[in-house]
Design a protein around this nucleic acid. Structure first.
Length: 419
DNA sequence: TCTGGGGTCCTATGCCTT
DNA sequence: TCTGAAGGCATAGGACCC
């Protein structure tokens, strides 16, 4: 049996742990740049604030209903997440951390356990030790445990936050209840396609022919169908496979048309990627650069383009990565466009130790030592003390984070004081 | 004025080699 | 040398996830 553990309204719950005044009040946490709502308390949901609600459009709603609004504080959420995961791993050796607020557990050899009460115990422990409320769904497959989890969350009074799909009747009932758009793995496009042929629930979906599913939804659709039928085809992924790409992308506060200004951003994004590479001891051998206009301003000229720049050797040097990124930008930059978003993604990662030397072209060996020194100084003196000439020395643009909570668990000065 | 960021996997396509 | 089939690989784009 699989269990899906999901933290309820995770970011909001994290804020509440350290600020109990927020309990029973509408609370929302905004995305990076304070752009849109990405976590809402039940009270905020009840006010009709949808997931992804643009903050500027909902300002009146926030004010009128005294909604507590926070910028996202990822260091805090990451730390709370690892505390929760730590506790969960005490209950079974088989755990897959699926995302910052979700984990799959596998109960192998638990035949003699009463899983209902065991899960109630898990829930109680996590809430007591961290203050984070969770929901648990248990079922014979991962996809069904997602469904069970949804039920536990939707009907907290009846389920007490734990629901098991452990019989054929419960499975059928759950699948008939679950709307197609809420099925794990079925997004907007597939929902439209399925609705067109009168598939409105998960139960309708499992009654489709395999051929149709294969043709229209690829092998992923077929896998999903099997899982919902109760045949487990997705196993736990306990070891995190190494990352295949590292991205740094941002939307701008306004729009930018000037080449030099975009170049400065791209250079900084590339350097940020290089720093992330070094912090996990890897190199890249190519970098993707993209720019795009504002897709919401339909009356303006739309333009989006990107390019992969191959680097002839493996590197994590600020200078090299930045140089290729800017060369890429030169190729895709078009004059007269109001750019809204840009980014760089480094690809073809390998670890620093075993990277291959190129027969003809290699990195200047001095870079390695220079980067070490830079990282050392940054760590000691704070970020952004050292810049390349391609970056703007005076200007300091940064994310909008007007409503940031303290880093209660990660910064000494922000630790709560008990008087 | 103001709509996130960071990932994954799959498929179609074109090119090259055997 | 030409031709067609088949596999490997890189690339672009679509769809999905949290």
């Amino acid at each position: 049996m699989f269990a899906l553990i999901d933290c309820n309204n995770f970011y909001v719950s994290c804020e509440r742990v350290f600020n109990p005044k927020l309990n029973n009040k509408p609370v929302v946490v905004l995305s990076n740049n304070d752009g849109c709502a990405i976590s809402r308390s039940n009270e905020a949901k009840a006010l009709g604030i949808p997931m992804g609600a643009p903050a500027f459009k909902y300002e009146k709603v926030f004010r009128k209903n005294n909604v507590e609004v926070f910028s996202s504080n990822f260091p805090l959420y990451g730390d709370m997440s690892s505390r929760v995961m730590n506790i969960l791993s005490k209950f079974t050796p088989n755990i897959e951390v699926y995302s910052i607020d979700e984990a799959f557990l596998k109960f192998d050899g638990f035949e003699n356990y009463d899983l209902q009460s065991y899960c109630e115990e898990i829930k109680k422990t996590v809430e007591k030790w961290t203050g984070i409320p969770i929901s648990i769904g248990v079922a014979p497959t991962k996809a069904l445990s997602k469904v069970a989890n949804r039920i536990s969350k939707k009907f907290p009074n009846q389920t007490k936050g734990v629901y098991l799909i452990n019989s054929e009747e419960r499975k059928i009932k759950a699948l008939k209840w679950l709307k197609i758009k809420d099925v794990w793995g079925i997004g907007f496009k597939h929902t439209e396609r399925l609705k067109n042929i009168k598939i409105n629930t998960a139960y309708n979906f499992i009654n489709l022919e395999d051929n149709w599913v294969r043709k229209n939804m690829s092998v992923l659709g077929v896998r999903l169908k099997k899982e919902l039928e109760g045949n487990s085809v997705l196993d736990l992924e306990e070891v995190r496979s190494p990352k295949k790409a590292i991205a740094t992308t941002r939307s701008f506060e306004g729009t930018i048309t000037d080449y030099e200004k975009i170049k400065e951003r791209i250079s900084t994004f590339a350097i940020c990627c290089a720093e992330k590479l070094r912090s996990q001891n890897s190199n890249c051998n190519s970098i993707y650069v993209f720019v795009r206009s504002n897709k919401f301003q339909k009356n303006k000229t739309q333009y989006r383009n990107g390019i992969v720049m191959t680097i002839p050797f493996s590197t994590n040097s600020n200078m090299v990565v930045s140089k290729y990124a800017v060369e890429g930008l030169k190729k895709i930059f078009k004059k007269g466009i109001d750019y809204k978003k840009a980014g760089t993604i480094v690809m073809g990662l390998d670890s620093s130790e075993n990277h291959q030397l190129n027969l003809f072209e290699n990195e200047n060996p001095k870079h390695k030592y220079l980067m070490k020194t830079i990282d050392y100084i940054q760590k000691k003196e704070g970020q952004s003390k050292i810049k390349l000439a391609s970056q703007d020395l005076k200007k300091r643009w940064k994310m909008k984070q007007e409503k940031l909570s303290p880093n209660y668990t990660c910064k000494v000065n922000d630790i709560i004081k008990v008087k």
